[in-house]
Structure formats: C-alpha cells, structure tokens
C-alpha cells in the first residue's frame, strides 16, 4: 500500500465545504462531533456514510432535520460494518455493469464504542475478513453516552458510570479497556490507525490514508465527552491532548501490519521524562473523583502501571524500546 503525501493546510481545510453541518443537536463541547467534522473534511470525492446507532446518529438526524450533506444511512447498533459491506458490494456490481457515473465512491462507517467494542464487533470482524473496501471510524467516548452513561467494553478501569457506580466498596469499573485497535491489527488488515481530535492534521491525514487504502481500514479516534466524563465543556480538546501526553491513548498506525508511532507520541518515546503522570488526567474528570479518596488511592497506581505496561508493549512493536 502506498502512503498518501497529502498534507492539508489549515486554510485549505477551512475553505472546504462542511459535509457534517451546524444545527446537529450534540451537547455543547461534544468530542465525537469534532471527530466527525474532521473526518468529513478529509474526504476526497463522492462519499457514502453509514452510521451505527449511537450519539452521533441520534444528534445528527432528528426527524425531519439532517446534518449530513452526503448520502447517509442509519443502521442498528450491531451491523454498521455489514451495512458498509453491502454498500461497497452494490457499488462494485453497479460499476461492473457500467451503471456508476463516478470513477470512485468512498464508503465510511461511523460507530461509537458501544457499536464497536461490544455489539458491533462480530459484523466488523466479518466485514474486514471478507476484505471490503471501506473505512471504519470508531469514535470512542468510553461508554454508552446517549442512553445514559452505561459502561461499555471501552470504559477504562476505575471510571464510575451508571452501571459501574463507584461506592464505598467498589471503585467504579473493575475491568480494563479492551485494546480494540490491536484486535483489528490482528485481523491483518492493510490499515489501522489511532487518532485524537486534539491533533487535527494527523487525524485528517490518517482518515485520507484510510480512504485511499484498497481494502478495509480501521480508525480509532479518542473523543472526550463532557457529559459522561463529567468535566467542563471547554476542556474537550485539552483532555484529548492529555490522553496522548500521558500515553493512555498513544497515536500510531499500522500499514500492512507494520507498527509506526506517530510524531505526537514519538516524542514521549524519545524523551520519556516528558511523559505526564496519569493522575493529572484522572483529576480533570469527575468520573474518577472517587479514586482520590484515601481508600482507592491504590487504583491510580494500578492504572498508571497498566498504562506503562501497554505503552512499553507498543514501543516494542514499533521497535522503539526505551533502552535503545
């Protein structure tokens, strides 16, 4: 696979038409809405979007209004990848029969963490195994936010949600977050990337690479949610950036299975002393408030330990071990 040389300038991007418009009814300071806007700015031509049930489906198409300027299909929680496969197969058949006016039409599937980590993983696994040519974008806000903040497979250890509440005995969610991007790498698909809304240029380039990939591409975007993570609406980008700086959400991509750290994370591999402690990241969010009680202090150390463990494993995969 060839990597794109596309380097968007800010001016070029702001002058490009909005395909995901204003007037959607996401909460003030919504992280996923920023991710969708940025991904739609990276499209290269005619695009069909399909959206699993989730926050972004609900807020963007409240009858009779739609915030989409592209053909858009809503589907259930579990089958957005199956839907994207069908669209791609239909486009292929129409092209073969000479009934397609366009040279190329891109297919993007959007889903939240509930529709990917938990409910949609079977359809996703099947679609990438069949090798359909589409970009799957996971916007990860770490719980089922639109139904009332229930824990998902993506909710991090120690977070309090309505179905994993923190109490006197239990410090929020007991399990750890599923490493979904690594699971997708294990499917041996041509392109997997993680991105953060705090670094728009990196995100746009990765989205474009995903679209240009022949075959399935998967993108995991870190999108803080003010409502569910319980922080002030103005801090969305700050927390997204802190996620990268603490290495709880490192940015990397794999091209044909080869791991590559992105520059925003590489700096912490080269200068480990600049990597921030996880407690600052946890402190900003009230879903982790209980961890600062003396009783649960040890949970913060556990989280830090797990973050370091995963970070070191990633460095090994990228051939960037800290001892070098």
């Amino acid at each position: 696979m060839t990597t794109t040389s596309w380097k968007p300038t800010a001016k070029e991007i702001v002058e490009k038409a909005e395909l995901f418009t204003s007037g959607h009814r996401a909460c003030a300071g919504c992280g996923p809405a920023i991710a969708l806007r940025q991904v739609m700015k990276a499209t290269r031509g005619p695009t069909i979007v399909t959206n699993a049930t989730g926050c972004m489906e609900v807020v963007s198409t409240i009858y009779p209004y739609t915030a989409w300027k592209v053909p858009w299909i809503h589907t259930a929680f579990e089958n957005v990848a199956a839907n994207a496969s069908g669209i791609e197969a239909a486009l292929k058949a129409m092209k073969r029969k000479g009934r397609l006016a366009h040279e190329n039409i891109d297919v993007i599937a959007f889903a939240g963490d509930g529709g990917t980590f938990d409910i949609g993983i079977q359809a996703l696994s099947g679609a990438v195994e069949r090798g359909h040519d589409f970009l799957y974008v996971l916007y990860d806000n770490e719980a089922y936010m639109n139904t009332g903040i229930q824990r998902s497979g993506s909710t991090p250890h120690g977070a309090s949600t309505t179905t994993s509440p923190a109490g006197r005995v239990i410090p929020g969610k007991l399990q750890y977050k599923k490493p979904i991007a690594d699971i997708m790498v294990a499917h041996e698909i041509p392109y997997v990337a993680t991105a953060s809304i705090a670094y728009w240029q990196d995100l746009l380039v990765k989205a474009r690479r995903g679209l240009e990939t022949e075959g399935p591409a998967f993108m995991h975007i870190f999108t803080p949610c003010p409502r569910g993570w319980r922080y002030d609406t103005s801090k969305t980008i700050e927390i997204a950036r802190l996620g990268v700086e603490t290495c709880i959400f490192p940015l990397w991509e794999t091209i044909d299975g080869e791991y590559n750290l992105s520059p925003q994370s590489k700096i912490f591999a080269l200068k480990p002393e600049r990597k921030k402690k996880i407690s600052g990241y946890l402190k900003m969010q009230r879903r982790f408030k209980h961890l600062f009680r003396p009783k649960f202090k040890h949970v913060i150390d556990e989280i830090q330990h797990r973050v370091d463990e995963r970070w070191n494993r990633l460095l090994k995969r990228c051939n960037m071990t800290q001892s070098d």
Binding site: T21, S22, H24, I62, Y63, T66
Partner: peptide
C-alpha cells in the same frame, strides 16, 4: 430526513 439541520438553530 428531508430538512437541512441548518434550519434548526
């Protein structure tokens, strides 16, 4: 959905 969301302020 047939109305653009930009009509909803």
């Amino acid at each position: 959905c047939w109305k653009p969301a930009t009509q909803y302020l």
